[in-house]
Design a protein around this nucleic acid. Structure first.
Lengths: 332, 332
DNA sequence: ATAAGATGAGTAATCGTTTACACCAATTCC
DNA sequence: GGAATTGGTGTAAACGATTACTCATCTTAT
């Protein structure tokens, strides 16, 4: 009735637990006939090793912690949701398990001190660097995903390059007054996208006008607020949004001002969020390769667990322009 | 340099490990002065009990498994994403941890047999019942979330009541030819919403017309396909969508047919997904209380872990009509 | 025929906690 | 003043797996 143990199998087969352990793990010699008997009985009883006992002696749990900032999880969920499932899928392929945890401040989550995980994937750029560094000091293998910091392994989006490409797309369509909006610039990814926007202007010898930049606030109304305040003071012909929810929300503000998309204002987003196909018109945006990044982060982390003393690697993943209808055709 | 253990504290303070354990757990008598010394040293060393050792002797892990169907996670992510973070937050409040796992078929995920969790929250109605029953047979405490099955504890949305209310809202606005669309009816929640739609028609003595029902396919184009095929054969004045992504996608199809929302066709969705405010016009929908359900499911599960022999409870949570602009004003 | 080597399996220590039990000293009771 | 109680602590046995050692037994080579 109770869970089967090595001992139960041993008694049943008439050997010692050591032999059973050897037979099941494949390490050490066991007579072929007894190995088969052991395997059969184990199968019959539905045996699986108790993880607590196993971790205790092996000093590893085969669990990976997936850490994300609690605020992050509230709004842009499709983004991190896809990353989460991709990470889980990849971990499972390697027979690892995923511990999901959120952090709100700089205190180490208990799963670390209690040895519940062998390594960490730290997701997003809202995790406090002080926390990241104190984790690093504990010498827990870790990889940053969609974030980067000197000295710490990371897999992240090429935000600068992506925003450069998005802005360049608008410039090629003939736009000269191109705005940039974000929910907030209090976020590394968004600041990098802003930087890419500025570099594109510069590369095409367009002046940077601070009037054309607006922040809103975090959450689903952010883009609406930013765009509304921007339209009150100036009139761009195109706008680069820091992400797709911001773009979608800005589109409502544009229409609320009686303007058409893309005829009056062209809009380009960032992320290729699932909602991008639902906006009216469907949103031109930069695709971010979420599951690819997840796979890379898992691979890197498992390597780091096997082989801890390595120089940090920083893996930057390029984005891809997805053209839909929110930017229209070239201006004349 | 290595993780501090009870033994390390014991040596430092000059007592036995048993005394340290007693002092830290608060069970059993310890002299007040030595207790304080132990607490101080433990704090100093940053001690936290090793979970593997602890689980081994206590026979519990303080981990809860969050199980979801792998397909589910791909598209309607905001929905389950919010549930996930709400469940994690609530578990953390109770000093429990969340193990995230997806299943693709009917094979038991390894975390069960390996004793990695004390209980399970099974999310969504796409998990195969055969799997659910085989988990139940292993006598692992479990609660279904956003799903229900006889004999198994559950916390779920009042889909029938919600769809009834949504449909009634349209009827009150004067609509008589009301369509129902879903990505698929191969899903309990959607079938229940369909049932609520039919009950509302019946309650208001409106005929049910199978012509007015259409399925699309799973994924982001589902609503578009369903609505397009429906519009090819008939012309409703309103449509109830099985969820918000379906509604948003149907709105594109309606516009693609040169029809206006809500003037030509009114649309009501279900879930109050974050995208509902981004559609044009913003979507009238039924709000589903995701974090409330998460809190209830966690509470129920922890109670079931403490006290396993209880009759199954089925907790149905009502929805709320959120009126935006996709249904317009009463028809004349 | 004997030494050396290979093979198979058992014994026991270990991982870090928890806790039943035993023990001694100090206090309280009659 | 001896018995009974209480308080504080240590000893040691679990929990379930892994693995270094040890020890037979059998094979093979010289």
């Amino acid at each position: 009735m109770t869970r089967p143990t090595l001992k139960a199998i041993a008694k049943r087969v008439g050997v010692s637990v050591a032999t059973v352990s050897r037979a099941l793990s494949g390490r050490g010699r066991v007579d072929e006939a007894t190995r088969e008997r052991i395997l059969r009985v184990a199968e019959e009883l539905g045996y699986a090793p108790d993880m607590a006992a196993r971790s205790l002696v092996l000093r590893r749990t085969e669990n990976i912690g997936f850490l994300i900032h609690a605020l992050q999880s509230l709004s842009p969920h499709t983004f991190y949701g896809e990353i989460l499932t991709a990470v889980e899928r990849e971990l499972r392929r390697h027979r690892y398990h995923l511990h999901f945890a959120t952090v709100e401040d700089e205190t180490l989550p208990p799963l670390i001190k209690e040895n519940r995980v062998d390594g960490l994937i730290l997701v997003g750029c809202d995790l406090p660097p002080s926390l990241i560094h104190s984790l690093k000091e504990r010498r827990i293998p870790l990889v940053l995903l969609d974030n980067h910091l000197p000295g710490i392994d990371s897999v992240f989006t090429d935000n600068i390059g992506g925003a450069f490409q998005a802005t360049t797309h608008l410039i090629r369509l003939g736009h000269r007054r191109i705005a940039f909006i974000a929910e907030t610039l209090d976020n590394l990814s968004f600041r990098e996208r802003f930087e890419g926007y500025r570099q594109a202007l510069e590369a095409h010898s367009l002046p940077f006008d601070p009037e054309l930049v607006a922040e809103g606030e975090r959450g689903f109304e952010g883009g609406f607020l930013a765009m509304s305040s921007l339209l009150k003071r100036t009139r761009p012909t195109a706008v680069v949004a820091a992400n797709d929810p911001t773009a979608a929300s800005a589109m409502r503000a544009i229409r609320a001002h009686g303007l058409r998309i893309p005829e009056d204002i062209a809009v380009v987003g960032f992320d290729d969020d699932p909602l991008a196909v639902h906006t009216d018109p469907p949103l031109t945006t930069m695709r971010v390769f979420r599951s690819k990044m997840a796979v890379l982060a898992v691979a890197r982390l498992l390597d780091l667990i096997k082989n801890p003393e390595q120089p940090a690697l920083h893996i930057r993943v390029e984005t891809q322009l997805i053209i839909r209808q929110s930017c229209g055709s070239p201006l004349t």
